[in-house]
Write a protein that binds this DNA or RNA. Structure first.
Lengths: 154, 154
DNA sequence: TGCGTTTAATTGCAAATGCAACTATTATTT
DNA sequence: AAATAATAGTTGCATTTGCAATTAAACGCA
């Protein structure tokens, strides 16, 4: 294509950061405007709802939501205070605890989804083709794979 | 390509969020390990350094860094306390203030860059081709353009 | 000119986050 | 089995964020 561009990778990274910040900000505004809790709550509720028996160990939940253990402890505190989640002591390992989503939790998650989905659609999906989605997804999967499971080194 | 995939857009969005969270976490760890401040500081310093006369109005800086005005006020408070930035009252509009990067600020930014750059490279750039970078960048630019300048509506 | 409006930036206060230390329990060594 | 290490989760405390209200200056216009 003629003149070579310096490197578009740096620009891609910058754009990745900016796009994330702007989109998340917009989504949070929409949720707040609808009188709904933040995305962080949604993520945890959704992770629990998908889980086999609607429960996950704190550790698993923290990993899936990509937040620290201590932050998850407090987030679950808040969710529990709101009646959306309950803690259950683990029988087989008495150190551990499960977070279990309640019926109210499921109801709220279900109520949040349309607002969240509409935001994703309008802000993100409507502007990219199916093909582009794949072209974004594939490299990101590779990136994530490299960070997460860099194949045990010895 | 034969069997149609449900929609890869949802998966792309999920991946976008996860990749962002994981990569940022890793980058922050590397900066902290090197005894350096967070990316938020870097962003502000870099925005100022790029600016014409090494200064920007608080408003512009907040927009560029995608953070709220009030948060920027405090972030600049901290940067100022660290001697990396100074505030300058605007002459032509006495409500306003400029944030100006200091020599120390420039020095620190310069010291942070190699660590940050190495992280971006290893975690992100090394796993995608130049072509893929473009294929990510283009749709994201469109997305961002749509959110930001949705063409004045009336 | 004077009055209401908009804009820039900051502040108060509550909520959320990050990090290091701590408790309880299980796993490993010897 | 006792001693040591490792793991799960929580807590204390300091930092950072978010939101609403506030102060100050500029603008718009009657």
């Amino acid at each position: 294509m003629g003149k070579s561009l310096e490197s578009s990778k740096g620009a891609t990274w910058a754009l990745f950061l900016t796009a994330h910040a702007v989109l998340l900000e917009q989504i949070e505004v929409r949720l707040a405007d609808a009188g709904l809790p933040s995305l962080a709550w949604y993520d945890v509720l959704w992770a629990l709802e998908r889980a086999g028996s609607r429960r996950l160990r704190m550790r698993e939940l923290a990993d899936m939501s990509v937040i620290s253990r201590s932050n998850l402890t407090r987030l679950v505190d808040r969710l529990e205070a709101a009646g959306l989640v309950a803690r259950e002591r683990a029988a087989e390992d008495r150190r551990g605890a499960f977070a279990v989503i309640t019926a109210e939790g499921r109801a709220l998650r279900k109520k949040m989804w349309p607002v969240y989905a509409a935001a994703i659609k309008e802000l993100f999906e409507d502007h990219i083709t199916e093909r582009e989605a794949t072209q974004i997804r594939e490299p990101l999967e590779r990136v994530l794979g490299a960070v997460r499971g860099p194949a045990v080194e010895d």
